Simulated scan of single mutants.
Amino acid sequence: MLSKELFDFTVLDRADVPFVLLDEFLKTWDGVLDAIFFFRDDEFPPIDGLVRDMGLKAPDQDKWFRSPISITRGCRQDKILRLRKMLKPYRYVGMLSYDDFTLQTHRLAGTLLLNCGSDLCCHAFNDHSILLRTSPQVRKLADAYIRKAIGKRERFVASHVRPMPDDCVKLWQSPEEDLDPIQLKEICRNDFMYSSGTSPCCDFHDVPGMRLYNTTTVFIMTHPTIRPRVARMLKAGGINAAFLDLSDLMSINMEAARPLRSPMSFSLLAIVEEAVAADARAFLGTAESSMTGMIVQRLHPSTPCPQERIARELNPRHCYFFSPRPSNELMPRRITNLYANRDMEGQEATFKRR
């Protein structure tokens, strides 16, 4: 996929944020990294393969280092100075990070609704992550799908259904009509999603949906391989959900005034799905998913939800996540309730206890 087609770099330019795209960088660089820095305490991942997939070459293992900054070690000024000193001898450095630069940046609203306290990485993430926005081209494709499949003036709510982890996705791909509850419990971290989705009470869909937001239209994001099961679960509750398929994306892209040149793929489909969900009246996500985090942390200017919802200073109270409550009641919860009266130090302590 072409980064220039996916993201709105004019926002970064206006904010004077320096950046360089890898394909442009490689025009004057041979792609050989001088060092690798890793933000975790556990074993190094398969770095050679990860770097090779990006068209780069990893340095020898004696140049693989652990960052003094992480969610477990914190991000104070002394640690930043130490990292700067470690980086000084090298020109081309690869930084391996997922959710470990600062606390749980991939989940829900990340740190955007937290008091960062003394954690400087948290402040940096809050200041700069919201500047990475979806491109106008992608938003136009999302708008074209909404007009075609939902209706330009039709209110709708959106939800992201993501069984966790990947082995649970494979279980949901099973052709069996009903899944084994023992397997669900053993394999899935959010097995409650399945039991609630097949429940006739339909709390999964209704609380952030029809009654509260006065709509009968639901847009569902989920991996194409489990859509048949998710569609059956919703239909059992009387909901015929809208899905964006790869064939839909190819069609609206061909009809676009400025079609994307990026190859059609499930990854590109997911990015356009995110833009559609960002336009919803309300959004219900899956707490552990980074895709949910992208939507919650970045939504559309015309909607009242959070990062494009938070990025544009929109009210996050119309964003929800799916979770069991202590009473074993399976209901969507407002994201604002999760973050109420929490700060970075309290979140870090909670994370360490898990």
Rank of each mutant, 00 (worst) to 15 (best):
S196N: 13
D127T: 06
T286G: 03
F25E: 12
S199M: 01
F9P: 06
E5G: 06
A35H: 05
A277E: 01
T217G: 00
D279G: 07
Y90A: 11
L113N: 03
S262G: 05
N190A: 00
R155C: 10
P324L: 08
M233H: 05
L56M: 07
P228T: 15
R232C: 02
I130C: 02
R232N: 10
K140R: 14
N240R: 05
P163R: 05
E313D: 14
F266L: 08
Y213E: 12
Q347C: 08
R261I: 05
L120V: 02
I239A: 02
A311H: 07
E345V: 12
M193C: 03
M193P: 00
V161A: 00
R312Y: 10
D343F: 06
Q61H: 10
M331A: 13
C168F: 01
Q347V: 08
I187L: 02
T105V: 13
V218Q: 07
R333Y: 04
F243Q: 12
M331G: 04
A277K: 02
I271F: 05
G74K: 12
H318T: 15
A270I: 01
K27P: 07
G197M: 09
R73D: 03
K88R: 14
T72H: 15
L2G: 06
A109Q: 06
L260R: 04
N337G: 11
R317T: 15
F219H: 13
L103I: 07
Q104C: 02
A15K: 06
Y194P: 00
V207G: 02
T10D: 15
R91F: 08
S262Q: 03
P324I: 07
D99G: 05
T10Q: 15
F9Y: 14
T215I: 09
L112T: 03
D180P: 04
R155P: 13
G285E: 01
P136M: 08
S70Y: 04
D99F: 00
R317W: 11
G117Y: 04
C122W: 02
E43R: 14
I252L: 11
Q104W: 01
